[in-house]
Amino acid sequence: MSEQQRNTMRTVRRLLLVTALMFAFGFVVMPPMYNAFCAITGLSGKTGRETEAQAAAKGVDKGRWVTVEFVTSTSAGLPWDFAPLTRKVRVHPGEVTEVDFAVESHADQSTTGQAVPSLAPNTAARYFKKTECFCFQRQQLAAREHRVMPVRFVVDPDLPKDETTLTLSYTFFRVQDSTVARDAGPTAKQGS
């Protein structure tokens, strides 16, 4: 092999390595990086989770009110009625509040759904923490079952002062029978 061929093969090996690394960057690195970025910035509207003890430790800011609104939707293919029993509440930051959501199945057989939350404005998403939520697990409803499900949440006292209204939305997605055995997805827990 001549000098030039050796050099050519070295160039090719390096470029193939770059190609492989860029594929790995797109396929392996970017999704977790994106999720981490969203978790830090709240960019995707995904809300946080903490224990009651953690919430209590921060104290309650009695000096201000925040309005929290609730909206719900159900994805196509899931024959459920899903609605908040309270449309909106006024809370003090730091105060643990419980609201109820009602869900009723119209299916003639058992169906399973997973609720996915999203908070607007998404810059406030990371200050909205839940201590208990029906979205932490998937919900299985028997035929025509009616269920009332609680959410306990706390708005972090560090919420920026200019945020006065938060809107929490839940969408119930059908969990297909073929995927029941599977976990709710690689990033589901983080999203809860």
């Binding site: 996915v116 997605f173 997805g185 990033t187 827990k189």
Partner: peptide
């Protein structure tokens, strides 16, 4: 579910 909200993706 990389891009499916139902499975926790975006």
């Amino acid at each position: 579910s990389f891009f499916s909200a139902a499975g926790g993706g975006d």
